[in-house]
Simulated assay, not measured.
Amino acid sequence: MVLWRYSKHGWLQKDLSRNSSHFISSLIQHLQREFPLKDLGSLSFLGIQVTQTPHGLHLNQSKYIVDLLSRVHIDGSKLAPSPCGTRVKMSHFDGDPLANPTFYRHVVGALQYCILPRPEIAFLVNQLCQHLHSPMSTNWSSVKLVLRYLIGTIGHGLFYAKSTLQLQAYCDSHWAGCLDDCQSTSGFAVYLGNSFVSSSAKKQPVVSCSSTKVEYRSLAITTAELYWLCMLFQEIGIPLPIARIIWCDNISALALASNSDIFTKGLSSARFAYLKSKLLVLPPINFKGAVKDTILQHEDSAISP
């Protein structure tokens, strides 16, 4: 519990979580005499159960998932080790139309709500949502696979423990992953210390002819999310002293992000020479020597000014 008190120096915050339960109870009783209050019991938010431990907070939706499984009548099915396979690619033309598409929309809509404490199913639920207008039998098979995975992991959820204020993100993309329109899928995950705080998995609005462009666009989307979080922490008065980090596994996208100045503006001679060397624009190579040695020599000499 946190108590806010206003003084001549502004708002002051007092942490009451370490005080005795007797003091907290007396404080609540005092507030009830002044204001209409209702004790809602243990902490919960929009159906998300919060378990407090000495090491942190555990968020799960076990009750919500049990209710969903009972509505779908899939309680006793065989468990699945993961919500999807390595070659999941859905198409509007695979399978037969469902006789009851309304029920499909109801179940997939419920799975969207499960993503809050269970981000590991976000990719497949995102794929299933793209077929809400005309679901097919293959889509329903994927829905049942997700439900079978949730059966064996009902109590799983996000865990938040005390950690550093280092903000870092991981981004990736799937080039031309959609079989119907060849659009790519971008995704990112943002961590504050060791705690998961934000994620996204959605199709890019345009079709890219290069995987580098797809990865670079994913990098830009992740950068915008990190910037928004930095501004949010700044507004609530929490400084982030550690530099923000974005992890990307595409070398071409990283090179484009590092060398974009050379394509957009005039540069000093030293900066231009450095970025030119990063692009591996080299003088004619003597084929009597080693090409590899020449490249390494230019990399060693290209020191950032």
Rank of each mutant, 00 (worst) to 15 (best):
N250K: 06
C84R: 08
A243L: 07
P305D: 09
C84D: 07
D300Q: 12
L256V: 15
I221C: 11
Q204Y: 08
W140K: 00
S62R: 08
V143M: 01
S21C: 15
S82D: 04
L179P: 13
D181T: 12
T222W: 04
F103W: 08
A169L: 00
R105H: 06
Q297W: 08
V50T: 01
A290N: 11
S210R: 15
F196G: 02
Y227L: 15
P117M: 04
L128Y: 03
L128K: 02
G152P: 04
S21T: 15
H174Q: 12
I154T: 07
L59W: 02
M136Y: 04
L192Q: 06
V108H: 01
D75A: 05
S137N: 06
S258I: 11
L98Y: 04
L57G: 00
L27Y: 07
C114M: 09
A253I: 05
F23P: 01
N286Y: 09
K14W: 11
K63D: 02
V88F: 10
K14R: 13
A122N: 07
S301T: 11
L69V: 04
H92N: 10
K63H: 09
H22Q: 14
F188E: 00
S184F: 07
H174C: 11
D180A: 06
P81D: 11
H22G: 10
L132R: 02
I48L: 01
S163W: 07
L296N: 14
